[in-house]
Amino acid sequence: MPSATFIDHAGQSRTVEGPEGENLMRVAVLNDVPGIDADCGGECACATCHVFVDEAWLDKCGEPSELETSMLSFAATAQPNSRLACQIILTSALDGIVVETPAAQH
C-alpha cells in the first residue's frame, strides 16, 4: 500500500499507509492522524482537511477543481501549495507523499 507522511504544525511527522484509490483525508482520519477535521466528510465543501503539499509532490497531485479552489480561497492560511486532502487520491505515483497540516482548520 502507498504511504503518506503528515507533518503537524509542531513539526511532528507521522507516516501512515492507505489503499490505492482512497483519498488522503480518509487515510488520515482512518489512521487517527490529528490536524485533519474533515467536517463535510469528503465532499469538498468545508476546507477543514486543508494541507500544504510538499513542493516535490505538488504537480503529481493534479489540478484542483473550481470548487476546491473556491473553498481554499476561504481557508484562513491558504498558500500556493494548499490543497484539500479529500481531493487528493492516493496512488502508487503518490507513494511517499509529504504534506503539512495547518495550526488549525477553519
Binding site: 474533515a38 465532499e43 468545508c46 470548487l67 477553519h106
Partner: peptide, 20 residues
C-alpha cells in the same frame, strides 16, 4: 466521535464565516 459533522453552519462557498 465526530461532533463537527453537522449541517448547522452550511457547507460549500456559503459556509458560515463566523463558525469558529
Amino acid at each position: 466521535a465526530r461532533p463537527r459533522q453537522h449541517l448547522s453552519f452550511g457547507f460549500g462557498i456559503h459556509r458560515c464565516v463566523g463558525n469558529r
